[in-house]
């Protein structure tokens, strides 16, 4: 077992001990802020990584966006006022960072955002960090054809299995609008998957 894995194993019970609110309080106390933030990173890094990965697709880009997300969280955690849940706030930052990344890529390449996403879909087959079968590939290509907001909602609902209320808090929208978007997304994916 590697050293980092041993540390991970040792930290597991500690991480489970602290609730989000306790982690925030520990961070705000100042003395143990680095320790608290490290626990927070370990608690959320995988969820945040996969959430961003489904938006930007490529691993290296996801790594950059995830780093920026956690640095932003670190810088702003002292101002977090517990009006919303910590995980909702973190997801919102990650979503905004990922969307900004896609937009900046669009600006850099002078492409419409739809073409950027089409490019991502085409690159999937050559991606060394994609080992899905044909069904996975087809599903991802279908998801990448969705308009950006529908894609976000579909990913959070279908893959992350978040509740409508949670998605509404993250995207600051109504659950009614979300349900309609998700319904449209499912219909489009169904149609795409049926095509050969």
């Amino acid at each position: 077992m590697k050293e980092t894995e041993i540390v991970e194993e040792l930290l597991k019970p500690v991480m489970q001990e602290y609730s989000d609110n306790e982690l925030i309080d520990l961070f705000k106390q100042g003395e143990n802020s680095n320790y608290a933030f490290n626990l927070l990173v370990k608690k959320y890094q995988e969820k945040i990584y996969w959430h961003i990965r489904k938006i930007v697709i490529n691993h290296e880009d996801t790594d950059d966006v995830a780093q920026n997300t956690f640095i932003k969280i670190y810088k702003n955690l002292n101002n977090f006022r517990k009006d919303s849940q910590l995980f909702t706030w973190i997801y919102r930052i990650a979503t905004n960072e990922a969307i900004s990344f896609i937009k900046s890529k669009k600006r850099r390449l002078f492409l419409p955002i739809v073409d950027v996403e089409k490019g991502l879909a085409n690159k999937l087959t050559d991606d060394p960090y994609f080992d899905g079968d044909e069904l996975n590939l087809k599903l991802q290509q279908a998801v990448l054809k969705l308009p950006q907001k529908q894609r976000l909602i579909f990913n959070m609902k279908y893959f992350d299995e978040l509740k409508y209320k949670e998605i509404a808090d993250i995207l600051k929208t109504s659950t009614g609008a979300l349900k309609a978007s998700y319904h449209h997304a499912v219909k489009k994916i169904e149609k795409f998957m049926a095509e050969d």
């Binding site: 590697k2 980092t4 933030f37 990584y49 780093q67 994609f130 996975n136 991802q140 893959f159």
Partner: peptide, 26 residues
Amino acid sequence: KIKGNTGFKVPENYFNEFSLKIQELV
């Protein structure tokens, strides 16, 4: 069949190294 699996993967030991990288950046 795919049970919500995306088909994406990460380099080996990525998440352990990621938290260390974040510590350095912090």
